[in-house]
Design a binder for these strands. Sequence first.
DNA 1: GTACCTTGTGAAACGCGTTTCACGTCAAGC
DNA 2: GCTTGACGTGAAACGCGTTTCACAAGGTAC
Lengths: 313, 313
Amino acid sequence: MANIRDVAKLSGHAVSTVSRALNHQGYLAEQTRKEIMAAVKQLDYHRNGLARALSIGKTNQVGVILPYINHPYFQKLADAITDIGFMNGYQVTMMPTNYSQERERHYLDMLKHHLVDGIIFTSRSIAFHDILPYRDYGPIVCCEDTFEYPIASVFTNRGESFVHAFQILKQCGLQHVGVTISRNEHVSQSAKLTLQAYSMVYGPGLDDQLIFRDTKNMFDGITAAEQFLKADPQLQVIFANGDEIAAGAQRQLANQQHPAIVIGQENLPVSFLMDFPTIDHQLTTIGDTAFELLFKAAIEKKQVAAKLILRGQ
Amino acid sequence: MANIRDVAKLSGHAVSTVSRALNHQGYLAEQTRKEIMAAVKQLDYHRNGLARALSIGKTNQVGVILPYINHPYFQKLADAITDIGFMNGYQVTMMPTNYSQERERHYLDMLKHHLVDGIIFTSRSIAFHDILPYRDYGPIVCCEDTFEYPIASVFTNRGESFVHAFQILKQCGLQHVGVTISRNEHVSQSAKLTLQAYSMVYGPGLDDQLIFRDTKNMFDGITAAEQFLKADPQLQVIFANGDEIAAGAQRQLANQQHPAIVIGQENLPVSFLMDFPTIDHQLTTIGDTAFELLFKAAIEKKQVAAKLILRGQ
DNA sequence: GTACCTTGTGAAACGCGTTTCACGTCAAGC
DNA sequence: GCTTGACGTGAAACGCGTTTCACAAGGTAC
């Protein structure tokens, strides 16, 4: 496979001149350009992107760290980032971690190794404190509040949106609530905010039987609904941590012919199809903003407003 | 940032010895190893993955070409590839094309530029004939039948599965069928097979009003159902080109209180939730196999059996 | 006529890790 | 005592594009 030196030799010009011709920069006589291009064509030369990246010190590649790839929340976020990345000439690589800290570190190391120009965390298991040192090797953005840590971030006002949703439920006279959360509230920011919002509106003391943890998919939603109905036969609301989960719960409620309502999150097509309310955390905006923040010199933190979408009864 | 030569200098050993130490290969005295590792630690040295890739001629990166990223079919396929890739030490990059041939070529060029080790096509707009020359630059696998072309491929027996599904529908006494297809049947292999299967079972002459083209999402499914009901008020079946589309159609049928049934494809959670039959094209298996074929020396073609999943009435 | 650009080009260094090959020990085998 | 092979190490070349800097030629300005 021909390299730039072969092109130089064949065209009778210097390597640097060929490089200039290929990059359309600096002074170059039209005649020279033509001769070089002829040689390029004759040799079927294509420049080696790796060598180029090494030389320039930039890969035009960004990584998206996410726990699971087949999860609607992270998919939607990753999609947004991939799209905006493409529009800006970047390749986006998925970095699934299954919440393994080892894997998260592995991906962060890619920053050290110059294999990606930046990394976006959609969720994490590793502590902010441990992410910090990696900032020396390249930009990092988190799609959640990073509080006092000097790490760029973008997030919705989750807590407020949860409080708002619970308030509306309460105003509708609904008192018996079951709540599903993604991970243990000591680990997951979102889970913590959900329980806090509940307490703020309904007061403390939500029966532990009415909290369902580690809820990830539709099937967990089904199981959660079953558990809630056993714990409280008068259940009126299931506050789910995602639309697919809400959908599973709704299906189970229908199966048991119990009239409670569900509320989901993310505004996925299924929430429209099955006609239940949902909290839209504006994942597309979050993704776009995350990408935008990645290459800003200063460490910025942005908040986006979540939107409550009312449906059904 | 320190490089391997700095480590060599500090440790008092040769660059090649350092390289050997870092790669755990060749002969190396334990004492030397220790001294080198001490220098590595002292300098906070991390090897440059780009330089390594350039030197080795391998990026451990594969690309997945897909039209849209937020489309359940391609997502499921891409997920499978990302997973299996990770297990094999590969990074997987999404290459969304929106069916633009220019973009497809752009990504294929990345193979020329040594930026990826291989490419998997989940769908394409470009002709096989035009893909062929790129095979000189690296392995390519298509997730569809490549017929006489020497391009590796893996696919389900789509045509047969469609015929099978139509036969069952016919046996149930269902005659009035509407069909949705993803793209024009002259462009899309799958669309062509769908219409052929219909003709084979029900005979030729499906009213053009009962074919809905360019069907991509739930909303198209809704529109298709509307159109079909206008064209044939006795409609009994909607044969959809995807579960989300089928879901949209089912919703519209319910809205108009019309008793027709829908059948989807891909066996997504929604088909279970909304309880309609679907054809499972085994996307996970397809993805796994595609990755496996990528690095096989010979050009192989594999077929996987689709599975009809009966539900509802 | 002198000073100073502008245009155009090439040699060489740089970014950085891997690999080949030659060479030097030292111990075992005969 | 000599051969052979295992063990260990380093100089140099290689993969390849970009960038800096020096230099030459032809103009223009005053």
